[in-house]
Every structure is written in structure tokens, then in C-alpha cells.
Simulated scan of single mutants.
Amino acid sequence: MLSLLLLLSATAPTDLALLDRAAEIFAGARQGEPGGPIAPIDRRLRLSACGSSPEFTWRTDAHDAIVIRCPDPRGWRIFVSVRAAPAVPAVQQAVAAKPVKEEPVIRRGDPVMLEAGDTGFAVSADGVAMADAAPGERLQVKVDGAKAPVQAIAVEAGKAKLPGW
């Protein structure tokens, strides 16, 4: 690939066919194949000669387009769309992505002890759960004397902590 890039930098104006081939090499797939460029670079483009080797990067982590850039001060930048690679079958995605739902340790209407604290001090208050929550999930707790419910994180049965404490 290095020799191809060196050849690219020596051409004037920039040879689009060589850029097409370099994009295929960068993507790891031929044009039209999954993972490769969708189509050749538009031949109507007139890119100025690049004094150094063009740089190839992915536009995003999704690998949906290649960015080809001339790093010269007055260089150019083009985008080459890439054909999506075949997706994992839906059945495999559902099995892999289906998280195990934990049983709630706090149920709506349960009495809850809210706790907050740090090294050297602890504060607690009694309240009533306004929703079901598994360990680590957030829930609203109605605290006696407070106008609005507070948000808490379920810890264990009958016990929750304030976020950030």
C-alpha cells in the first residue's frame, strides 16, 4: 500500500483511479462488495496535485464512509461511501442483546430508608417507593415533609441511596 500512496503523491493532477484502488485497499474490500466503496469516485472531480501522500481515515466508527484528505495547506478532502457489511442475523442480535432482567427489590408502596453519606457522616430519611426497582435502578421516593418526591437508586430490599453519594 505504501508504494501505491507514493505513486499517488507523484501524480499531477491526482489520479482518481488510483484513489479508488487505495480506498479499496484501505476498506479491505473491493468496490461494490460489502465493506468496500459503493461506487467509483466521481470522474468530474478535478483534484489538484497533492504534494504528499493522501491520508485515509474512517468518517465515523460505523465505517460508513472513507475520508481521503490531501494534507497540503491548500489541500482537498473527499468522502467515499462504503457499502454496509452484512449485519448479524436478527436472531443472534436478540440473543446477544437481551439483558437479564433482575427482580425488583423495592416495590411500589414499600417503605424505603434513603441514605446519603461520606466518610465521617451519614444522613437517612424514611420514605415510600413510588415505583418498582431492581438493584442499581432509579426510582422516585416520596419523603415525609418534602413537597416533591426525590430520585434514589435501589440498593437492596427497603434501602436506597441518593445519586452521587
Rank of each mutant, 00 (worst) to 15 (best):
P104T: 07
R108D: 15
A62V: 06
P135I: 04
F121V: 01
A84Y: 05
E115T: 12
R138V: 06
A87P: 04
S81Q: 13
K147T: 13
A65F: 02
W76D: 11
F121G: 01
Q93K: 07
I66H: 07
P73Q: 15
A87T: 14
G145D: 14
P71T: 09
G120E: 05
A84L: 10
D72L: 05
I68M: 14
P149D: 08
P135F: 00
A90W: 04
V80W: 05
V100W: 04
G145Q: 12
P104V: 09
V88W: 04
D132F: 05
V128D: 02
I78R: 08
V141M: 00
D72I: 02
G120A: 05
S81T: 10
A133D: 01
V100I: 11
A96D: 12
E102H: 08
A134H: 04
V128G: 02
D132I: 05
L139K: 00
V123E: 15
A122T: 12
V141Y: 01
D144E: 15
A133C: 07
A85G: 14
V155F: 01
D72M: 06
K161V: 14
R74I: 10
G75L: 07
I78A: 08
E103G: 00
K159L: 15
R77V: 12
P135D: 04
R69S: 15
D72G: 10
R59Y: 11
S81G: 13
V141A: 00
A152G: 03
E115G: 10
V112I: 11
V150R: 13
Q93F: 03
F121C: 01
V150H: 03
R108Q: 15
T60M: 07
W76K: 11
V123K: 14
A148F: 14
P73L: 09
A146T: 09
A131V: 02
E156L: 00
A131T: 05
A96Q: 05
D118T: 04
A131K: 03
A116S: 14
R77P: 05
D61T: 08
A160R: 00
A96L: 09
S124T: 13
L139S: 00
A85T: 07
A157N: 15
K161A: 15
